[in-house]
């Protein structure tokens, strides 16, 4: 039983340490890399708890997509981070005070927290026995929780429409591929055969017609 505990402290320790490094490292790219490390360790903690589906989703979604997106944003936007940090020392005292208040509140809450014994009995969708939790999720996601799933789908549809509305621009000067026009093109439309008189070359009028 010592091995899981050992791994717990390993993952938890690295997770907290890399979370601190996200904030304190000077180079924003390093921050994102530490963020990825924090996510991977959090995934490890999920595996220890037996939630392998959540662990994999965390790796796929957060490490695979979100963190890389952050990296793109940081590299593409010219944000001067030294300027952002300028007021750091100035605001440190007030930040410490607010942080201290939050910490005290959390300790007070955590200290008085007694898990209601009825809570563990009232879990609405307990994992059935002999079923991996990926399968257990699949069993309820499209049946019992179909309405949540569908509404989440509509939320994503709105996000897609929104992205198109806010970014797509139809400019007259942009040439787009039109496959119908391409397929309807005949040799007569695309080519012209001209007799070129020796020593005179192609006349301007012919050339203009040909270009069209």
């Amino acid at each position: 039983m010592i091995l899981p505990a050992l791994f717990f402290y390993l993952f938890a320790g690295v997770c907290v340490a890399s979370a601190v490094m996200v904030i304190v490292s000077r180079n924003p790219v390093h921050s994102v890399l530490f963020l990825i490390l924090a996510f991977v360790n959090a995934a490890g903690l999920f595996v220890l708890m037996g939630a392998e589906f959540l662990a994999m989703i965390l790796v796929v979604v957060y490490v695979g997509a979100v963190a890389v997106l952050f990296l793109f944003v940081i590299m593409m936007l010219d944000v001067d981070f030294t300027e952002l940090r300028e007021g750091f020392i100035e605001y440190l005292p007030i930040g410490l005070v607010i942080g201290g208040i939050f910490l005290t509140e959390l300790l007070l809450i955590g200290g008085s927290w007694v898990i209601n014994p009825s809570v563990s009995k009232s879990i609405t969708a307990a994992i059935p026995a002999n079923v991996s939790n990926t399968e257990a999720l699949g069993l309820v996601l499209y049946t019992k929780y179909i309405h949540y799933f569908q509404i989440a789908g509509i939320v994503l549809l709105v996000a897609m429409i929104g992205a198109i509305v806010l970014t797509l621009r139809h400019k007259a000067s942009v040439k787009r591929q039109d496959i119908n026009v391409q397929n309807a093109r005949t040799p007569e439309l695309a080519m012209a055969v001209r007799k070129v008189a020796s020593g005179q070359g192609l006349q301007d009028a012919d050339a203009a017609e040909w270009v069209k």
């Binding site: 709105v158 996000a159 429409i161 929104g162 509305v165 806010l166």
Partner: peptide, 10 residues
């Protein structure tokens, strides 16, 4: 709430 708000942001 999210469905309502997301459309409002846009």
């Amino acid at each position: 709430l999210e469905l309502m708000s997301l459309a409002l942001y846009v």
